[in-house]
Design a protein around this nucleic acid. Structure first.
Length: 851
RNA sequence: GGGCGAUUAGCUCAUUUGGCUAGAGCGCUACAUUGACGUUGUAGAGGUGAUAGGUUCGAAUCCUAUAUCGCCCACCA
């Protein structure tokens, strides 16, 4: 088959992927090694097409997988999709909104079915995108986070934790988004700085002996105050503790108490206590056994527990009304500007209200402790290393995890409550039923679903458990977890904790954290700004291989780096280079699979380069230095093979050598450019069903080191000769002296040449004009005056060219390099010396003339 | 408020335990070349490695400040 002049990826990629799938190339099969390697891919959200960041993830994982596969190991790259509970529901709600509907028009079950269909559509789209990216993942093991095996695992874990008392249901303050009407984990709340006020309010003492002034940023919550707190050692308020105040705007009396948590130096040193709407106050309330009065409801409006006047108002409205009333009542002592941080919903930016709610919590202390111990024992290697310490710090400050979500799209919590006894909860997985009968009692299902992260935290083993535990035994703990820094806390930390809890082992041996793909200008990509790069058109224009290499190029672990289209072009050009190398080698009738017999110096040299590259590339990939690994392959192929080896062996094509060289570079490049290398492989070995993807890593070939070094030396000589040759350039009558190594000489020369101006009159021409700008010197040469220079220089240049050509010719001659390699090296050295001498002569001559 | 990262050539970025002349791609300059490849070849110019100190025989790399940018975490009302 004749290869076209330039590589046209579109023509081959789809067929190549289909070929791999058809031949079962992605199945985890041992090919010469007993070792296994597993990457369970972080499942992308099933609610949309793939972001370009996923190209990076998929490239890093696939490069690693393909490398290990070529090393003969059984490699499992497991693909999946994430139902992404809340995320997906938000996307779907936006779709509903466009149709003028709302999620509250449907029951949770109806909503679930609708979103299921919506997701099914999208999954197909991105599965094909993953194929387009070339991920060599095992589709037979494809897992969706709502697959039965994942749900079962979540239920088992939940049950175990329940039985062991790690799960508790409690009325706690929950981060509640009043727009989405669901609670969030702490980690899902986004804090933003807000310019607000600090209101100081006088609370009159009931005994009429005075007042106490409290400071607050949220005056509307005073409607739910149940106490005032001061620091026990605060002398100002010593007399007040134990007394009561009359809460303004209400008819309630509340106590003044002392608690360590109060900061004497903040505000007035006296704090109003609202256990139902502030986490600190909640704890104070627990300590002092105070009642909790919820004055803000799930809809964000003032409840009926507040005085009539304010009921039904929004928080904003209530704040205004309360402040006005306090002011007119003479209770408002002071208002100051105050900047503080406020939690917001990460989707809709609504202010998060801490609200009292019954939810399921996991007691994280025991889990975190084990995880910290494992991390400190270095049971997991992190790339970059610093992420481990970050994770430990996070785990050390971890609080209990709220796993209930008030949304439809997710795994229903398998818990039912006795309709007659709100304390009586039972575990039961018949979640398709609204109610169940147990021992004559009626139980109603908890309508909530699990936080997505609860089930997905079992990903490293839950994906491998079904149908039996064979894969679990082989591939757990996983080899590598490759993911982005943004989910180090919400996901990686929990996989480690749950992995240890459920299996007793860390879930993976290594974690690689990649940086984000930023926009070209370094800012964050965002749909609203419109600077998002869609990977699919890039793949179409430049090819999947070019995008993979372009996106890993110049990127190091955990560093955010902008998408640079120039890198993709660079990689595309590289693909084309490799393509043309193959084209050239193929045209000389080469077949793969032959044993190389090095004859010339160049043969020994290129084999030594390939030996070195195979070993070094392995090291780099095993320590996840992707960018450097790619660069190595790039320069090996472009510089060593194309520019030197092929040039040096043009007149003496040794088919076995060329075949071996091509085969080796194809293998080394395969993890990076899978489509291209397989396309070439298929073209050159059309007779059987051999695939490069399942071939084997190059083995070390025996060579004569001395001969290899001989070539290396000659190579250096040729380079130097080239430099000398081009040190003297002619351009439109200008003489340029550009060789940096001759700087001192050149400058001296320039000075002398300046004197040539004096020759101007003598020779009747325009003479020489010395120019100087920006530290550079050059001469404008009048043709008549400088003719002899130029002629002389041209002669020298021709001579030098001949020397180089001569050397190259000998290099290509196997009989010469084979029989007398040392002689050739010596001769080349001698010629270099001659050339240098020549150059010196030229300079001397000019100096003389100039002086 | 706490933690972390970044700052290197015109641009985008490398440089893993401190050590050869700090590299790459693009861009730029000059030249070459019509059969593997112009998605090419050869050569070149271009960096006081943010700033100021310090440690060391030796620092882009370690330490201390400062500046700018970015990220993450955080219940001071």
């Amino acid at each position: 088959m004749k290869l076209s002049k330039t590589y046209e990826p579109n023509q081959y990629e789809e067929d190549i992927y289909a070929l791999w799938e058809k031949q079962g190339a992605f199945a985890p099969v041992h090919r010469g090694s007993k070792e296994t390697f597993c990457i369970v891919m972080p499942p992308p959200n099933a609610n949309a097409g793939l972001h370009i960041g996923y190209t990076l993830t998929s490239a890093l994982e696939d490069i690693t997988a393909r490398y290990h596969r070529l090393k003969g190991r059984a490699v499992l790259l497991l693909p999946g999709a994430d139902h992404a509970g809340f995320e997906t529901q938000v996307v779907y709600e936006k779709k509903l909104a466009k149709e003028g509907k709302s999620r509250f028009d449907f029951s949770r079950d109806e909503l679930y079915t609708q979103i299921w269909d919506f997701v099914a559509e999208n999954k197909g789209i991105f599965e094909n995108q993953i194929r387009a990216m070339g991920a060599s993942c095992d589709w037979d093991n494809y897992t969706f986070t709502l697959d039965q095996k994942i749900v079962d695992r979540a239920y088992k874990t939940f049950k175990n934790m329940w039985d062991e008392g790690l799960i508790y249901r409690g009325e706690r303050l929950v981060n509640f988004c009043t727009y989405h009407e669901t609670g969030f984990a702490d980690i899902e709340v986004v804090h933003e700085e807000v310019k607000g006020h600090l209101w100081e309010i006088d609370y009159p003492l009931t005994d009429g002996s005075g007042k106490i002034t409290v400071a607050t940023t949220r005056p509307e919550t005073m409607l739910g105050d149940v106490a005032v707190a001061v620091h026990p050692k605060d002398k100002r308020y010593k007399e007040f503790v134990g007394k009561t105040v009359k809460l303004p705007l209400t008819d309630r009396e509340i106590p003044i108490l002392s608690d360590e948590f109060v900061d004497k130096d903040f505000g007035t040193g006296a704090v109003k206590i609202t256990p139902a709407h502030d986490p600190n106050d909640f704890e104070v309330g627990q300590r002092h056994d105070l009642p909790k009065i919820s004055v803000i409801g799930h809809n964000g409006k003032i409840t009926n527990d507040a005085p009539k006047k304010y009921r039904g108002l929004t928080v904003e409205e209530a704040r205004k009304a309360v402040v006005e009333d306090l002011d007119s009542g003479g209770f408002l002592a002071n208002v100051k500007d105050h900047v503080h941080n406020v939690g917001h919903c990460y989707k809709c930016k609504t202010v998060i209200e801490p609200l009292l709610k019954e939810q399921w919590f996991i007691d994280m202390q025991p889990l975190a402790k084990k995880a910290i111990k494992s991390l400190k024992n270095n049971e997991i290697t992190f790339y970059p290393e610093s992420k481990k310490d970050q994770l430990v710090k996070y785990l050390e400050g971890l609080r209990d995890w709220n796993i209930s979500r008030q949304i439809a799209w997710g795994i229903p919590i398998p818990a039912f409550v006795n309709v007659n006894d709100p304390e009586d909860w039972i575990f039961n997985t018949e979640v398709t039923k609204e109610t169940i009968e147990v021992e004559g009692k009626t139980y109603r299902r908890d309508p909530d679903v699990f936080d997505t992260w609860f089930s997905s935290s079992s990903w490293p083993y839950a994906t491998l458990e079904y149908p039996d535990n064979k894969e679990l035994a082989e591939f757990y703990p996983n080899g590598l977890m490759e993911t982005g820094g943004e989910i180090l806390y919400p996901w990686v930390s929990r996989m480690v904790m749950l992995g240890l809890y459920v299996t007793g082992k860390v879930p993976f041996k290594e974690v690689y954290i990649h940086g984000y793909v930023m926009a070209e200008d370094g800012s964050k990509m965002s749909k609203s700004i419109g600077n998002v790069v869609d990977p699919m058109p890039v793949i179409k224009e430049f090819g999947s291989d070019a995008l993979r290499m372009g996106i890993i190029s110049g990127r190091s672990a955990a560093v955010n780096t902008g998408y640079d289209s120039r890198r993709v072009v660079e990689a595309r050009n590289f693909c084309n280079k490799l393509w043309n190398i193959a084209r050239y080698i193929e045209s000389s009738g080469v077949v793969l699979g032959e044993n190389p017999e090095p004859k010339t110096l160049a043969d020994h040299w290129i084999l030594s380069r390939l030996n070195w590259a195979s070993a070094r590339l392995g090291e780099l990939l095993e320590s996840y230095e992707f960018s450097e690994a790619y660069e190595l392959v790039y320069h090996l192929i472009w510089d060593d093979v194309a520019d030197w080896y092929i040039e040096a062996s043009k007149s003496s094509s040794d088919k076995a050598m060329l075949g071996y060289v091509l085969e080796t570079i194809l293998k080394l490049a395969h993890p990076f450019a899978p489509f291209l290398t397989e396309t070439i492989w298929q073209t050159i070995t059309p007779e059987d069903d051999s695939l490069i993807i399942t071939s084997s890593w190059p083995k070390t070939v025996k060579i004569d080191e001395e001969k290899a070094e001989g070539f290396q030396e000659i190579k250096a000589v040729v380079s130097e000769l080239r430099q000398i040759k081009t040190a003297l350039l002619y351009d439109k009558g200008s003489l340029l002296f550009t060789d940096g190594k001759l700087d001192a000489d050149s400058q001296d020369l320039i000075k002398r040449l300046a004197k040539l101006e004096e020759l101007k009159s003598a020779e009747g021409g325009q003479g020489l004009q010395l120019n100087q700008a920006g530290g550079k010197y050059w001469l404008d040469v009048d043709r008549h005056t400088a003719k002899k220079f130029i002629d002389s220089l041209k002669n020298r240049e021709v001579q030098l060219s001949k020397v180089i050509d001569n050397l190259n010719t000998r290099l290509r001659n196997p009989s010469y390099t084979e029989k007398a390699p040392e002689k050739l090296v010596n001769e080349s050295r001698a010629q270099l010396a001659d050339a240098k001498q020549e150059l010196g002569n030229i300079i001397d001559q000019i100096k003389k003339y100039g002086g």
